[in-house]
Amino acid sequence: MTLEWQYVAHALPFLLEGTLITVEVSLLAVALGLLVGILVVLGRQSRFKILRALIIAYISIVRGTPLFIQILIVYYALPALGLDIPRFESGVIALSLNSGAYISEMIRGGLMAIPKGQLDAARAFGMRSGLIWRRITLPQVLVLILPPLTMEFTGLLKSSALLSVIGLVELTRRAQQVIGETLRSPEVWLATAALYFIMCFALGTVTRRLEKAAAAYRL
């Protein structure tokens, strides 16, 4: 069997629709993941031992189990608890909970890069810890973690392919649908892989630029 590329030309508009959903889900997940990450870092500094223990348990569960299983659990187990969540939201929740654990580690790394003298100085000026976070720490950490954060976004573009399993019509699911109609699986899979490649390769280039810029910012 030879590959027949006219099928790809036919399928491309459908695949691009799916690509849009893939980008949308990943963007939402990285934004919410950043929020979760910040809350996790703040929670780890909490006075309450139970909160700290819960956060550590959350991080080890997320890092210790496959994302695939986390996605299934969020999709199938939350309705059992009486929460009826649609596919899209369920997917975003699973991805951002996963991402949040990894992003919190990035933030911790970023925090360490901030000179302690700055915090001492801020405190000496009479700034409260909340204000120090908002004005001194967070803005700098956000710049410092921008390169790993774009890398995380690239990772999410790739891992969001798993959401096809719960029936979310993103790029991979779209490809399966197109294959169902055209019965031309090799061409469509290669085209799908190419679409992911273009997005991730481009973002990889952006990440390398940001890394250089962040290194300059540090000086």
Binding site: M1, A161, T192, A193, F197, C200, G204
Partner: peptide, 24 residues
């Protein structure tokens, strides 16, 4: 290296599982 790093593992699995048989 770039192809493997810049595509989802799931899609790699599908490509291997569905494209190889098509090439015989």
């Amino acid at each position: 290296v770039e192809i493997v790093r810049d595509t989802p593992f799931l899609v790699q699995v599908f490509v291997i599982y569905f494209v190889f048989p098509a090439t015989g």
